[in-house]
């Protein structure tokens, strides 16, 4: 292949990535505009709050408790190399609240919620349910996308907050039961060490990750191809895109909150 052809191919790739980014951005802005403008669908919002928030609690709780426990063991073992075992409560707290809590909850939401939103909406598209909505004078963005994005914006920060607490409790349990830490001192160290900025960054990350997860699920669902293969592709693409965007957004937000 000639260098010129290679350059042309690279150019096409860059343009296609930029075009996709533009389409997703316009879709997200459209979703936000539908959240703000009536009519509203409170029943759809309630169902989305239940599905995205309440029903994600078990997987978020289990992920957080095991991660917090493992983190305590790792920090204890690593800290022992330079006689710093005592930092377990502080590092578990900061690690869970600043990074692991939001990122793991975000990825779990991408796995659980983004996939289910994309598969549901893609199936609705394939079976003409989206066309049926339009013929029944109901805007699909308003009825399907707006409630899901709003529900994710509300519930994912709460899930992150709960995940942070459960993760810290996982570390606490392991530290107190297995590593010989004093229970009261562990909790005191955790509370003393955490700053407001840590908690705020965690919740803001949760809100951003929630919006990314819901928007990507809806975008891929609404733009799915035909048949079972189309639904499969939409589901796979939505989870991949949501996971990568969540990790990229985490990097950017960490920079915004903590770069000195």
């Amino acid at each position: 292949m000639s260098p010129l052809a290679l350059l042309a191919r690279l150019g096409r790739l860059v343009l296609s990535v930029l075009a996709s980014f533009g389409r997703v951005t316009l879709f997200a802005l459209d979703a936000v505009s539908h959240i703000l403008r009536p009519p509203y669908y409170p029943r759809e919002l309630a169902v989305a709050l239940l599905n995205i928030g309440w029903l994600s609690l078990p997987v978020v709780g289990l992920t957080a408790i095991f991660t917090g426990g493992a983190l305590a063991l790792q920090i204890y073992a690593g800290g022992a190399r330079f006689n710093a075992e005592a930092v377990v409560p502080q590092i578990v707290a900061i690690g869970m609240v600043r990074e692991l809590g939001p990122v793991l909850v975000g990825l779990m939401i991408a796995a659980r919620v983004t996939s289910s939103i994309a598969a549901e909406i893609a199936t609705m598209k394939v079976t003409e349910q989206i066309d049926a909505l339009v013929t029944l004078s109901t805007h699909p963005m308003k009825y399907l996308t707006a409630p899901r994005v709003l529900a994710a914006l509300i519930t994912v920060p709460l899930l992150v907050g709960i995940g942070d607490i459960i993760g810290i409790m996982g570390g606490y349990t392991v530290a107190v039961q297995n590593l010989g830490f004093n229970a009261a001192a562990y909790l005191q160290n955790t509370v003393d060490f955490l700053e407001t900025r840590d908690v705020v960054s965690s919740l803001v990350k949760g809100a951003v990750f929630g919006v990314i997860a819901a928007v990507m699920g809806c975008y891929y669902g609404m733009n799915s191809g035909r048949g079972a293969q189309g639904v499969g592709r939409a589901t796979k693409g939505s989870v991949e895109a949501a996971a990568v965007l969540i990790l990229a957004a985490n990097f950017v937000l960490t920079g915004v909150f903590f770069s000195i």
């Binding site: 079976t127 003409e128 049926a132 339009v134 013929t135």
Partner: peptide
């Protein structure tokens, strides 16, 4: 659209 009703091939329920 309020003037129309449509029966879809697969029902689209």
């Amino acid at each position: 659209l309020a003037r129309f009703g449509m029966l879809f091939q697969g029902g689209a329920l």
